[in-house]
Design a protein around this nucleic acid. Structure first.
Lengths: 192, 192
DNA sequence: GGCAAAACATGAACATTGTTCTAATCTCCC
DNA sequence: GGGAGATTAGAACAATGTTCATGTTTTGCC
């Protein structure tokens, strides 16, 4: 999950100092996104905040979108790692629902720029969860689980974004309803 | 639903010719959005496509966002009108689910730029559906229906966007699952 | 240590886009 | 037909995305 995926990255940093500077750029982008949304994400603002010249951004990232994609990927990896950690010992899916939603809420509260988890990333989450489900819970083939999981993840992402639009800490009602909706749907959609 | 809402519109057209030109601008914006997403929506491109000078856009709209908002509102009104038409005689909510999803799919296929129905618009849809439900189906107070409806609309919007990312005509599996998910959730969330 | 090659830093310069402004033209109504 | 308000028109300014040539630092190697 480290190699240059697709084409959002132009060069990967190889020296120590540049690894740090790339992280500074991602941190700066995350902070700007939290403050003013995607519209506030200007390349010059990122450069100023990270204390690097504009050229450095384009040295490592294809363009502004590539920078945002890289940030999304970094957040995705943190999210998956957090889920993997929490999933220890979980053997039935209703517990999984609580788990994943709670981790999402926690990330939204603590990880800057977590809003940038696009549809491309959602698919990865769905596949990861389907794999876990197939491995430890249901012996069914993973393919049959992936599509319902994709539906669940997409819906959950939208509802939790709604929860955080309503309240900075995540409106408790919408968080609770997200879990309720996921349980109601998966109870019908997953093979028994 | 016509007066200048909030502040996305700078002046409303009063002469006949300018009403037509404003519609040309919205049509051009819709076409560009369908072709290349929000990134392809440049004010100059809209002006060229609508065969008006840039100044005219800023004469009627506050800024580029105001133009997109106005398009979203126009699409929302068509959507609500379509729903209202189909809702004649419907007296229980499962039929409503099919109806609203089908109308959404139809609009996505035929109305240019329908992708631009933001969260602000979703709330209006939810309130409209809650009102209908309160009026003709359940005697319960509308307030108790609005929040579950908001959840349902937000989830449906996300899932149908997924369906249309997968296939230009809307992936049938995801469309069917959207209905399934809505039924499963509303069956639990609505008062019986 | 010293040296060549690769990686990196830097910011001026260019292209595109968002937005404003002032002057000229057109519509509508008395 | 005349005048006030509505509208057209596009040049001009500002901000942003992006590239590029040049200079500096790090790395691997003798």
């Amino acid at each position: 999950m480290i190699g240059a995926v697709g084409s959002s990255v132009r060069r990967s940093p190889v020296q120590q100092r540049s690894v740090e500077r790339v992280n500074q750029m991602l941190d700066a982008a995350a902070a700007l996104l939290d403050e003013g949304g995607y519209e506030a994400l200007s390349t010059r603002a990122v450069a100023a905040r990270a204390e690097v010249p504009i050229g450095s951004i384009y040295h490592f990232f294809r363009d502004k979108r590539g920078l945002a994609d890289a940030l999304a990927r970094r957040n995705l990896e943190r999210f998956l790692a957090g889920i993997e950690r929490r999933l220890e010992g979980v053997t039935h899916w209703p517990a999984m629902v609580d788990l994943v939603v709670d981790e999402y809420v926690e990330m939204k509260r603590t990880v800057p720029g977590f809003a940038v988890v696009d549809f491309r990333e959602n698919r990865v989450v769905a596949e990861s969860l389907a794999a876990h489900l197939a491995r430890r819970i249901s012996p069914a083939d993973q393919a049959a689980l992936t599509r319902p999981m994709t539906v669940a993840v997409e819906a959950a992402d939208a509802l939790l974004k709604l929860a955080f639009r309503e309240s900075p800490e995540g409106d408790p009602y919408y968080v609770a309803e997200t879990k309720e909706l996921l349980r109601a749907y998966l109870d019908r959609a997953l093979p028994h």
